[in-house]
Design a protein around this nucleic acid. Structure first.
Lengths: 168, 168
DNA sequence: TGGCATTAGTTTCATACGAAACTATTATCT
DNA sequence: AGATAATAGTTTCGTATGAAACTAATGCCA
């Protein structure tokens, strides 16, 4: 492995895509996503946005859609659609908030809780297998790097400190 | 920052999305992507697949579409569409390969080379700004971690050791 | 109280995506 | 050579995406 082009922007005007961090992040993220999305899709007929909504409801109990927007870095359109499907499939219950009739309070239905309890260990196991490639110190380093990069990226990004989309 | 759940799969059946590495990778990748995609889109009316094709042609000179598939982790549908647009916009020239008439050999046209020379420094500058948040040793660590994780993720992934898609 | 700005959430619309099917050409096997 | 498999690349088709417009309810301020 040749020493990477890490010294700021030297090696002027030569760009090797395979070493370009945004590209590598994109490829990695998508490889990982596919591996994990299979669990949700094949075994539970869940999309990733649906899974994220369930994860938040499973952890926090009762939330409005906009709470979930704030928690998941998904935009409200995505959340709205995910919630609609979850309600349609009987995995989530929505009850109107009587103190603010624009809002609906969402909770996992029994079927949703059942699935949630099944998925969580599978998801954690996948994550563990991914991290198997790393030493313990490397995992801590990863944790720190992800946090730092996310903070920096948010500065460079436009309004929508978005989520899924197009990488590079 | 609480010590992360890195000890394999302890803390059983508790999943906090904000700490879940696949999720964090997804959010980061997409935040970075948006920041960078803006350059391509606003200033050059280029999509990311088009940019990737140009990056490979800019570096390697003359390639077939399937060469690019092999180099970019994009599937052939995406490459095909990107190439079609690049040819339509006069940025890439496609000439039939006389020794194998299924193939077309692609090169950057003059307009494509011009754009390529303009984009490369901008892309590298964005990358540099992202990495500004890291110390030099951290950048080296990032390089290593990305490589290791990509290797491991490829093992867990299905056939299509894909690219863009849906994260978590 | 009335009116204007906000917020919650949905719908519309144009675009991107990729699996699968398809066309055309080349490779391989007998 | 003739048939079958494999490869290059395109098209089809159903689905996902998000910006922008929209509906409905609430907040704010004079």
């Amino acid at each position: 492995m040749p020493s990477p082009r890490t010294e700021t922007a030297e090696q002027v005007s030569s760009l090797i895509l395979e070493r370009f961090v945004p590209y590598r992040l994109s490829v990695l993220s998508n490889t990982v996503s596919r591996a994990i999305a299979r669990i949700y899709a094949e075994r539970f007929d869940l999309t990733i946005p649906e899974w994220r909504v369930m994860a938040q409801l499973g952890r926090h109990g009762r939330l409005s859609a906009s709470d979930i927007v704030g928690l998941t870095a998904m935009d409200k359109v995505r959340v709205s659609r995910a919630v609609a499907r979850l309600v349609a499939s009987g995995r989530v219950v929505a009850v109107p908030d009587e103190t603010d009739r624009r809002r609906q309070l969402l909770t996992l239905a029994a079927a949703g809780r059942r699935i949630y309890r099944e998925i969580v260990p599978l998801a954690l196991e996948r994550e563990a297998r991914l991290l198997d490639a790393l030493e313990p110190e490397e995992r801590r380093a990863l944790d720190r790097l992800l946090a730092k990069l996310q903070g920096q990226a948010a500065k460079l990004a436009p309004k929508t400190a978005g989520e899924d989309g197009e990488p590079d």
